[in-house]
Nucleic acid binder design. Sequence first.
DNA 1: TATTGTTATACTCTATAACTATA
DNA 2: TATAGTTATAGAGTATAACAATA
Lengths: 152, 152
Amino acid sequence: MDGLAQLSFLVQNSLARHATEHSLSLVQTRLLGILRDREPTMNELARLLELDKSSVTGLIDRAERRGLVERIASLADRRAVLVRLTDEGRSLVAQVSTLFELDVSRMLECLPVSDRDALSRLVSRALVAHAANRGVDLFATIDSARTAGSVR
Amino acid sequence: MDGLAQLSFLVQNSLARHATEHSLSLVQTRLLGILRDREPTMNELARLLELDKSSVTGLIDRAERRGLVERIASLADRRAVLVRLTDEGRSLVAQVSTLFELDVSRMLECLPVSDRDALSRLVSRALVAHAANRGVDLFATIDSARTAGSVR
DNA sequence: TATTGTTATACTCTATAACTATA
DNA sequence: TATAGTTATAGAGTATAACAATA
């Protein structure tokens, strides 16, 4: 109930804090997280981030200016542009991701192992049940949560 | 573990979605949520929202222009300005809050009652343990989570 | 014609620095 | 002198609409 909201703010705060410490916004961090295992087109990025394509243009402009990502012409479709993480971008997202995971781990370590397992089981059950309940609609949300959370 | 991150994004997405449907940003929604049971000064708002005071000036400017809040001269300190929710603002935050609570409830209804109770118990235990573990530092975060979450 | 991406424009949100008025 | 708040300015993030190039 209310605890879930509190918990979600704790998790988000942790992510936001570590992002800010590395001069990243939440969106930039989500972007880099997505790019860790993909080289999507601008269009795909817009869908993954649930943003307008023009917003993604600006987002990539700024990230490219900082040397975190690079644009690559697609060979398959000459209209399309692929986005790739640079070494610097990869290193940066790895740092933020490590700190964030550490935070979540520390939060969970407050619980005895048995509770931790139970919590993990209940959370996945809630996620699965929720997804099943809402069908397609929710799959989009879950996917965006996963990719966003894959920061992680 | 990773599920917690996913869950937090689900909760945040729900809040963001209902806020957007009512032409509110997340920050505006947090603002209105805070004002439901308080009439803070600009300075106190800056602390509660963890923003610079100049950011709060702009935030209140825009909310006031929309008729959601009003500035009131403080009688105690002639430098200070109190911020109060208007009837329209109160009605708006009530709508968003209701829809959000409904979402969270629906998500929890996917679980059998016994699991729901267990989850609730574990989440509060994690929050309490976490707070105790980090001391003052975390109290600030928890408080901001609570006030933000009191949207709720 | 439809799709991919960029540009132009406008608004919100945020911070820093300089300022005014009051304490 | 210190504090409360505003203003000026700059930059990120977002969307809509118009556009170019390609499919």
